[in-house]
């Protein structure tokens, strides 16, 4: 099982911009195997959710366009590699949910409030497989049980009758019901409490082990990435700034942005001074940062020099076989 994104570039044409565009995802390479969890970390507005959406070609077609690149997926050994970008629109439903599925950030808005959850789950089964009503119900119940939801009792519930954590588990059940080989989880725990978010993470870890699932985990919290993922991609203004094994990145961050991100969160270690000033990144992410011709982190970087403006770090520097950094100063 393998999902390979190569040189993916997506242009966003904001409304009323008069034809101006920004590359909201800019030549992103990403590689993930079955059973791996890759975390995409970045702040709001950095284009990480957009990347998640466009892997499934769910990006809004009226304002955005995939310019170049490929998303190749291979699920079973006997199957051929499939390039999602080259597929016709009518073939996309056979990929969505079946090969790759997605869990969205807010379970309150992504479940239909007027339809029972059992119906919403079986809907996905009927769309892809020729099964009877009772059979589909049994499948749905078994998946709900796997997600630690009492399937038989909750099958006829409406979303408002469930707690937030339970709704998110129903969302994961819905995503897993066709047994896909990859799951894109777009900030699945942001809207949840600390204790319930731990449950959801627990669950993702469990289904990864059980069914050798590859997960792309989009989050803004490096500490979640540290605790759940094998690989981490640090995302800023549409570009991958640094990628590699999660432990290496946390223990030895190289890119100035990663360094600042790690320093700006209070730590729990014993030698940590309580009440000291936190490290901050000046300014904030703006649309200008997406402009080509300079390092995208330049305006907020603490390591910037004159040569940063002239020599643009166009490609990722290779540190070792899995570690890449987009910075001149490393």
């Amino acid at each position: 099982m393998n999902l390979e994104i190569k040189d993916l570039t997506i242009r966003l044409y904001p409304k009323k911009s008069g034809g101006r565009y920004i590359n909201v995802v800019d030549s992103v390479d990403l590689n993930i195997k079955g059973g791996e969890i890759a975390a995409i970390v970045g702040e709001s507005g950095s284009g990480k959710s957009f990347l998640g959406l466009s892997i499934l070609r769910l990006n809004p077609p009226d304002v955005s366009k995939i310019v170049s690149g490929s998303v190749k997926i291979k699920c079973l050994e006997k199957n051929d590699e499939l390039d999602i970008i080259k597929l016709y629109r009518k073939d996309l439903p056979s990929v969505r949910g079946r090969l790759i599925s997605m869990v969205f950030q807010d379970p309150n808005t992504s479940l239909n409030p007027v339809i029972k959850i059992g119906e919403q789950i079986t809907e996905a089964i009927f769309a892809h497989e020729k099964v009877g009503k009772l059979e589909a119900k049994e499948i749905a119940i078994s998946y709900l049980n796997r997600m630690n939801v009492d399937g038989r009792a909750r099958f006829n519930s409406y979303p408002h009758e469930l707690s937030g954590g339970m709704r998110q588990r129903v969302m994961i059940a819905m995503a897993m019901v066709l047994n896909p080989c990859f799951l894109i989880a777009d900030e699945p725990t942001t809207a949840l409490d600390v204790t319930t978010s731990l449950q959801v993470l627990n669950l993702i870890e469990k289904i990864r082990l059980e069914s050798n699932l590859g997960v792309i985990f989009i989050t803004h919290d490096l500490s979640i990435a540290k605790n759940i993922s094998d690989k981490t991609y640090v995302f800023y203004a549409g570009q991958v700034m640094e990628c590699g094994k999660t432990e290496e990145i946390i223990d030895n961050p190289l890119h100035p942005y990663t360094v600042s991100l790690i320093k700006s969160v209070p730590s729990l270690s014993k030698d940590y001074m309580q009440g000291q000033r936190l490290f901050t990144i000046p300014g904030y992410l703006t649309n200008d940062d997406f402009m080509p011709g300079k390092c995208r982190f330049y305006s907020r970087c603490f390591k910037k020099g004159k040569d940063c403006l002239q020599n643009i770090p166009l490609s990722l520097n290779k540190i070792n076989s899995e570690r890449f950094v987009r910075c001149l100063k490393v």
Partner: peptide, 25 residues
């Protein structure tokens, strides 16, 4: 249930609660 990157290992998820006891809302 705090997640922090000062933890040395990948979290061994919850040993406190089998059957999610204690974590429900």
């Amino acid at each position: 249930s705090i997640l922090s990157y000062s933890f040395k290992k990948r979290l061994n998820f919850i040993n406190l609660n089998e059957n999610n006891k204690g974590l429900e809302g």
